[in-house]
Simulated assay, not measured.
Amino acid sequence: MALTAQRFTALDVFRGMTVCFMIIVNTPGNGATTFSPLLHAKWHGFTPTDLVFPSFLFAVGNALSFVMNRYRSMPKSQVWGKILKRVFIIFLLGFLMYWFPFVHWEEGRLVGNEFASTRVFGVLQRIALVFGIAALLIYYFDWRRALIISVAGLLLYWVLLLLFGEPGAQLTLHSNAVLKLDNWLIGPKHLYMGEGVPFDPEGLLSTLPAIANVTAGYAAGYFLQKQGKNFEALAKLLLTGCTLLFIAYLWNLAFPINKKLWTSSFVVLTVAIDCIILAMLVYVIDLRRKTNWTYFFEVFGRNPLFIYLLSEVLAILLYFFRTGDQSYYSAIYNAVFAPLGGYLGSFLFAITFMLICWLVGYLLDKRKIYIRV
């Protein structure tokens, strides 16, 4: 059966929601007074914030389901060129974002940021890698085989984490296969230091299970296009989500849900929740026709990578420029939002920051400017 060419508003809204909430959780006014649901789990466990990034990868798979037929009509060399070009550009943007603004303050003077201490892997880099791998898998195989290969990757990742690391401590922050491979490949100075020790939650090895988030998103998008907007399709999508929830929590008993290691049980859990959310969105938007609220999220969904990159660069610049002995980021929070209360002020700062990014997206949308990579 040929896929319908009609776009699903629900898929665009889903993508926009992930960008919206990604900005909110990434830019609290004060991390020490952030509501707990807006924080990542410290290690094992799961919070709503942990759902944001895998949902973006799921949305990448959704979007891929609309272009794959066009890829299949092109010469193979052209397809490889398009995919690899996108992988390279997104990866490079992510790397440059962590290097930016290329200087930092040190004892009142500007000093260059050394390449030797620049983070190599990260959010955009993971998006680039998993998009490229998933796109090629789906292009050369059908989506079912690509999904089977992705599931095999989840099982392989489980084995690798069990085999490597100190005996009995394979899943600790200080001893795991992800950290060992990154240390061997690029060294600790190129890793994320947010935990106080060199460890990258977007490390190279943990990219392997993340591929399944994209292929699952592709399968969901393909399924909805093929089956159409009807209650039977939604029932199947909901049933899939509920089944995967059961599998995830069962797997959690042996292989804990952990976003920072991107464990296989974490992948299954996030795909399950994404299937359920997507089914709910299709029901409300495409079946019930309740669309008076959707435009806000569609703005984010129409320029997702650009708006995300804008949010990160803007936050970096607010931290970089200083007034007195504090950054503009802290000065704005302390002057405007802190008096409203620690937790409330931090949350309202994040909401305001997100709305500023939305306004840029709104102006782009009104001018029909859509920045694609």
Rank of each mutant, 00 (worst) to 15 (best):
W105Q: 07
R109M: 06
I133C: 05
F100W: 08
E114L: 13
R109E: 14
E106K: 13
V79I: 09
W80K: 01
F115R: 06
E107P: 03
L124P: 00
K82M: 09
F95E: 08
S77H: 11
Q78T: 14
V130M: 09
I138N: 00
V79R: 02
L129F: 14
F115E: 09
A128L: 02
Q78Y: 03
G108D: 03
I138Q: 01
Q125T: 14
F102A: 06
I127Q: 05
G122S: 15
E106R: 13
W80F: 12
S73K: 12
P101E: 10
R126C: 14
R119P: 00
E107V: 07
L129G: 06
S73D: 12
F131I: 11
Y140H: 13
W99N: 02
L136G: 01
R119M: 14
F100Y: 13
G122Q: 10
L129M: 15
V111C: 07
M74F: 13
I90S: 12
L93Y: 00
S73W: 01
M74K: 15
I138W: 00
R72Y: 05
F102K: 09
K76R: 15
R126Q: 11
F131A: 12
R109W: 07
L84F: 15
V103G: 03
K82G: 08
A134R: 06
L84Y: 11
W80H: 06
G132R: 00
I89M: 14
I127P: 02
L136N: 01
G94K: 11
G132H: 00
V123E: 02
L96N: 02
F121S: 04
R72P: 02
L93E: 03
Q125W: 00
G122M: 12
G94N: 11
F91S: 10
K82H: 08
R86M: 06
L110A: 14
R72L: 13
L136P: 01
I138S: 00
E107L: 07
G81A: 08
P75I: 09
W80N: 02
I83Y: 04
L137A: 05
S117L: 05
L137C: 02
F88G: 08
P75V: 11
N113L: 13
I127Y: 01
A134Q: 10
P101D: 08
L129H: 01
E106G: 04
L136W: 03
